Simulated assay, not measured.
Amino acid sequence: MKTKPLSLIIALAFCSFSAVASANQCDSPYNQTAPKYSYQLKKTFEVDGRQGITTDGNFYYVSGSATLSKYDLQGNLLVSNKTPFEGYKIPANHIGDIDVYNNEIYVSSEWFMDGVGKDIQIAVHDAETLKLKRTFPFNPDSGQQEVSAITVDKVNNSIWMASWVGEESGRYLYEYDLETGKYKRKVHLQPVPQWIQGIVAYQGDIYLTADDGTADDKEADNLYRVKIDNNKTNAPVVLERSFDDFKDYGEIEGVAVNPKTHELLVHSNRGKQIVLGMPKGFYPGYDREISEVYVYGMEPVCKKK
């Protein structure tokens, strides 16, 4: 039997090592702390509503502070509810980010004024008419003092809420049972994002938009990824993307993922100065606030073979 040349042995060993390294790359500790996707801007469209965005893959649903609207996938307005709080048992004046599940719109609502929220409640609206179907209150024992966003987590059969202000602002996500509405627990985010505005559960991860860039200083806002472990009280937070490709610096809001196209949808406002969560005036060059949805293609950074 002939002996293989040393160079061939080294080459074969390198190829074998590369194959193993490639197979394990997606599960490496580094990949768990790095962005999961790359994002390519595909289009933007203007909407009537400055708070939230969600989609079931057939329609877009948008929330304003006191409105709910439904659009087709070309961005044409189909239905609008200008009095969404009709039928609420507890008075409300503010809607945050929203989500859609089983032809129902899940709304995070509260009474909000000058940076202070109270009377948090989860409202469920019909996705066809946008009218209220039912509500259930949050659990004050959770410590949550304000709500900025809500999402339905189909993997864990849960509802998650986030807060923008308050003593626990950004430190926790709050989990409720999807079927009963019963409060389950809160999860400590580490490190803590600042000024959470949007939330969406997608394929076992939770994504958060944070208004942590200062528009006056021309700082971009960011997207974060959270990996929830049902056996842990805390969860690691990874910087997923900075939105330095927005048309102008402003205030990021809701976030969603199209379940059919797997596109990321990000809601953002520009033009108005915001003080304690309240619009106060216009930036130079603007005479109105512009609310837009940015649509991004999502490509996995690490592709398992």
Rank of each mutant, 00 (worst) to 15 (best):
K2N: 11
K4W: 12
L6I: 09
S7D: 07
F17K: 05
V20S: 10
A21Y: 12
A23T: 10
N24W: 13
D27R: 09
S28I: 01
Y30C: 06
A34V: 11
Y39Q: 12
K43R: 15
K43V: 06
T44K: 15
T55N: 12
S65K: 14
T67L: 14
Y71S: 09
D72R: 08
S80E: 13
Y88I: 03
P91T: 12
A92T: 14
N93T: 10
I98S: 03
D99P: 02
I105G: 01
Y106W: 14
S108L: 05
E110I: 07
F112C: 07
D114K: 14
V116G: 02
V116H: 12
V116C: 00
K118S: 15
D119S: 11
Q121D: 11
D126M: 07
E128C: 00
L130R: 02
K131G: 06
K133W: 02
R134P: 05
P137G: 08
N139W: 01
P140I: 07
P140L: 08
N156D: 15
M161E: 05
S163G: 08
W164L: 10
R171M: 09
R171Y: 01
R171A: 09
Y176L: 00
G181Q: 06
Y183N: 04
Q190R: 08
P191R: 08
V192D: 05
P193R: 03
I196P: 04
I199H: 01
Q203E: 15
D212P: 10
A220E: 11
D221L: 01
L223V: 10
K232W: 04
L239A: 02
D244N: 15
D245L: 03
F246Q: 10
Y249F: 15
G250K: 04
E253N: 00
G254Y: 01
P259A: 11
L264D: 03
L265D: 04
S268D: 06
N269A: 07
Q273S: 08
I274A: 07
L276D: 13
G277T: 09
M278R: 01
Y283V: 05
E292N: 13
V293A: 03
M298E: 00
